[in-house]
């Protein structure tokens, strides 16, 4: 006589296989993949606009949307990093513009080779990021206040360095201007700036998801006290995050030069807050410790698609801002709901 032995199941297994209704399943999925809900919204939005406006879905326009998203996406790469670490950076836009002026001045006025000018821009970005980082990590000042202050400081430096004048791209060499050059694939036009942003995201994803530094950034953002108890050097991690964000802004600045064909003190006036909008829409929590790098790209494209698409279907520009505002609040509401996920 044979007996089949049935192992009693643990409570954990029972719980994992409990029946969930569809809402819980979605909530669970989105919790594990924070980029999935903005991506779904993006796909639905693109389909809606395409159905209403043939101009929207034209390859020429879709190419433009990607080009228009590039600078915002690059800035959002820095912003998502900072938010995951539990901070925030309101100075990203003016930091970026300042690095473009450093690059522009060194190339056009001092006549330095492009590579040197760009590296100096990156060094300037790192130094400015280190300024933010040291105030926040060493002196324990609130990141919101620090970067609000540096927004003004960097903005003033922009004016002082530039004297209010743009530097025309004609004075730069071909490497600096590379990000504005385009190539075609199957009817779509891509700029090298888009390629730069794509590489930036690949590197950042690797750093955040595959290295111990990345895990420390998540840990510090999730619970800095717990991180300290497991021997993570919290202030060092915070410092490194703002320095990295500064370097990313210099890369974003390079993309910006390509897009405006100039180093212009007036550029990117809306990007400071837009980057936070894009990152939050992309599924990153303002509370830190949870976020999606891919979501930041999706969020940036989504913001741009909203503005471009609403215009092409004939919605007044004033309502475009309204729609982006609603989108942001919905995204934050969704974030709250997802954070309530059980197990």
């Amino acid at each position: 006589m044979t007996t089949i032995e049935v192992q009693p199941r643990t409570a954990d297994e029972e719980f994992a296989e409990r029946r969930r209704h569809i809402g819980q399943k979605i909530q669970h999925f989105v919790h594990r993949h924070p980029w999935s809900s903005p991506l779904a919204i993006l796909i639905v939005t693109v389909m809606c606009f395409s159905a209403i406006s043939a101009q929207f879905s034209a390859a020429v326009n879709l190419s433009l949307v990607l080009q228009q998203s590039a600078v915002l996406a690059a800035v959002s790469a820095g912003q998502v990093l900072v938010l995951i670490s539990g901070g925030v950076d309101l100075s990203v836009g003016s930091l970026m513009v300042l690095t473009t002026l450093v690059v522009g001045k060194l190339s056009a006025d001092a006549g330095l080779p492009d590579v040197i000018a760009l590296l100096a821009g990156a060094a300037a970005g790192a130094a400015l990021g280190a300024f933010n980082g040291s105030m926040i990590a060493r002196f324990k000042l609130n990141p919101f206040i620090v970067t609000l202050g540096s927004l003004s400081i960097f903005g003033a430096l922009v004016t002082l360095v530039s004297g209010g004048e743009s530097i025309d791209a004609g004075k730069f060499g071909s490497l600096i201007n590379l990000t504005g050059k385009s190539f075609k694939i199957a009817g779509f036009t891509f700029t090298w700036g888009i390629v730069v942003v794509a590489v930036l995201y690949l590197v950042l994803s690797y750093m955040l998801l595959q290295t111990s530094w990345g895990r420390h950034v998540f840990a510090v953002g999730d619970d800095s006290e717990a991180a300290r108890l497991v021997a993570i050097r919290v202030s060092r991690v915070r410092m490194s995050v703002y320095i990295a964000a500064g370097v990313i802004m210099a890369i974003a600045g390079w993309v910006l030069i390509g897009r405006t064909a100039a180093a212009s003190p007036q550029a990117a006036t809306t990007v400071n807050l837009d980057s936070i909008t894009a990152v939050v829409i992309g599924g990153t929590s303002l509370a830190g410790g949870r976020g999606s790098i891919i979501g930041a790209v999706v969020g940036s494209v989504l913001v741009t698609v909203f503005r471009n698409g609403l215009f092409l279907v004939g919605v007044d520009a004033l309502y475009q801002n309204l729609a982006v505002g609603v989108l942001t609040i919905v995204a934050v509401g969704l974030d709250q709901w997802i954070r309530k996920v059980k197990a």
Binding site: V71, L256, A262, S264, Q266, A267, T269, T270, F311, A317
Partner: peptide, 10 residues
């Protein structure tokens, strides 16, 4: 179109 530019280059 009537489009806003913020009077800037970008």
């Amino acid at each position: 179109c009537h489009q806003p530019t913020q009077a800037t280059q970008d």
